[in-house]
């Protein structure tokens, strides 16, 4: 039991940290709902994994990865916003997911379950989080520059389309591994709320990105810890921990004005 808890906390800290860091870009891009909606796209992938007896998180990742590529391509071709395309895709994916998902396991997929976490899951989650963080750090400034002005980014030789695609893929990977802790319905929270709290407290980009990551890790750690003590699903408690941080950031901002 203790071993499972330690493994879950490890996954939570690493996934929370990387999701918070990547989410800081999403909040700046005003794509917060994209992060939330994208997580639901994983549901049919999870269902296929359970139905055909392969690792459901591979299915989730495959669906997220494919969705990210489709969203990126449709965005370029149609010039529709990411939010519009993701909105259409996520409702379709959620509908298919609910239809084909074995009912007995649906709740676990939606809200997360730490009881089945293995050492292998933890190792994969930690390594994937570190690689995602490293790659995100490499493209972070370029992404922000392209948000400030696409022309400025291009004038500095930034391939805006390519780094946006890489960013969406990194979000897909982190969301896929975050699902086992928080569940597909709530994993989007880790991408949005820590960054929103950090934005309330930051005047520069470095502080903003670091605080987003720390708040993500703290939310995941404390939520998983309490879920273990209270014997509840981790997802909702991770969300509540994060919301407490967010409310504290709002109060701090309000008092500093």
């Amino acid at each position: 039991m203790i071993e499972t808890l330690i493994l879950s906390l490890l996954i939570g800290v690493f996934v929370g940290f990387s999701a918070g860091y990547l989410g800081s870009i999403m909040v700046l891009e005003k794509m917060a709902l994209v992060g939330d909606a994208l997580s639901h796209v994983a549901l049919p992938g999870l269902a296929l994994g359970i139905l055909f007896n392969f690792n459901p998180f591979l299915g989730a990742f495959a669906f997220l990865f494919a969705s990210a590529v489709i969203i990126w391509h449709l965005g370029r071709v149609t010039k529709l916003s990411f939010e519009t395309i993701v909105g259409a895709m996520f409702t379709l994916a959620l509908a298919i997911g609910i239809l084909i998902f074995p009912e007995a396991e649906l709740l676990e997929a939606l809200f997360g379950d730490i009881a089945k976490v293995t050492a292998l899951d933890t190792g994969v989650a930690v390594v994937v989080s570190i690689v995602a963080l490293f790659l995100a750090k490499l493209i972070y400034k370029k992404l922000v520059l392209s948000m400030i002005s696409e022309e400025l980014a291009v004038s500095k030789g930034v391939d805006v389309g390519r780094i946006n695609l890489l960013y969406l893929l990194l979000v897909s990977v982190v969301v896929a591994i975050g699902i086992q802790i928080v569940g597909t319905l709530l994993v989007g929270f880790l991408v949005i709320v820590p960054a929103a709290a950090a934005k309330n407290l930051s005047a520069d980009l470095f502080k903003y990105a670091i605080l987003s990551a720390i708040f993500g890790a703290t939310s995941a750690f404390s939520g998983i810890l309490f879920s273990s003590f209270l014997n509840l699903s981790p997802g909702p408690l991770v969300v509540i921990s994060g919301i407490i941080i967010f409310v504290a950031s709002v109060v701090a901002k309000w008092q500093s004005q």
Binding site: L28, V144, M147, I148, S149, K199, D204
Partner: peptide, 8 residues
């Protein structure tokens, strides 16, 4: 340039 929402 769009900097209103970006803490930079």
């Amino acid at each position: 340039i769009a900097v209103d929402e970006i803490p930079i």
